[in-house]
Design a protein around this nucleic acid. Structure first.
Length: 202
DNA sequence: CATACGATTGACT
DNA sequence: GTCAATCGTATGA
């Protein structure tokens, strides 16, 4: 469904192309999935990127072949998942920032410690289940052990295209939580008009 | 060896 | 709105 070359483009292109794709994680025969609705692009000579100062042990996966998963520990607490893009040696990736849960909602709620919330509201409408890079990894069960895995293998974490195209005009804006290159508009979202998000960049 | 700093989140005022 | 938690990584002595 996805080929290696699909990930070989520059991170901002892949970041947009990944919108509305399904992220599927199978662990122990249980599959959880969600639709990717928010991403961020990080390039090699990008002051906000982990690869800005060259290759290290931590960011080595980002310099490897595209289509692999780069997972890092954020603030000593949270895991964040990225898709490696570009050519070997480029040092680029797309941070997966938010998904809309699709399958395995009970499992995700349990991992997030939000079972009570789900019991009260129903599993489909907990807004805080996976609306952030750390929450997404916790909900799907992605950990540092998944760092470097190939998304094209049938190895736990994979992507699926169920026919929903990326938005014609994604919502673009500054990336979140960074202190350098704060004005670069490489954060992309699926617009949700019902929430007042109009499909136009700032 | 020492230390400063996060591509975040959740709890609290 | 503010702020602490928590630890791997990078950097410099």
């Amino acid at each position: 469904m996805f080929e290696r070359t699909w990930f070989g483009r520059d991170a901002p292109d892949v970041a947009i192309a990944l919108l509305n794709k399904l992220l599927v994680v199978s662990v122990g025969g249980v599959a959880c999935s969600g639709r990717i609705i928010e991403t961020e692009a990080y390039l090699r000579h990008d002051p906000a990127s982990h690869t800005f100062n060259g290759e290290t042990q931590r960011n080595a996966v980002m310099f490897g072949p595209p289509g692999h998963l780069y997972v890092y520990l954020s603030y000593g607490i949270h895991q964040c998942a990225n898709v490696v893009t570009g050519a070997v040696g480029d040092g680029q990736a797309v941070l997966l920032r938010a998904i809309e849960p699709v399958a395995g909602l009970e499992t995700m709620a349990a991992r997030r410690g939000r079972i009570n919330r789900v019991r009260d509201l129903g599993p489909a409408v907990d807004p805080d289940l996976a609306n952030g890079p750390g929450k997404l990894c916790q909900a799907l069960g992605i950990t540092g052990d998944d760092n470097g895995i190939d998304l094209l293998d049938a190895s736990g974490v994979s992507l699926r295209d169920d026919g929903v195209p990326p938005p014609a005009v994604p919502l673009a804006g500054p990336r979140v939580g960074i202190t350098k290159a704060v004005e670069v508009p490489w954060r992309f979202r699926v617009p949700r008009p019902e929430r007042g998000e109009l499909p136009s960049p700032r």
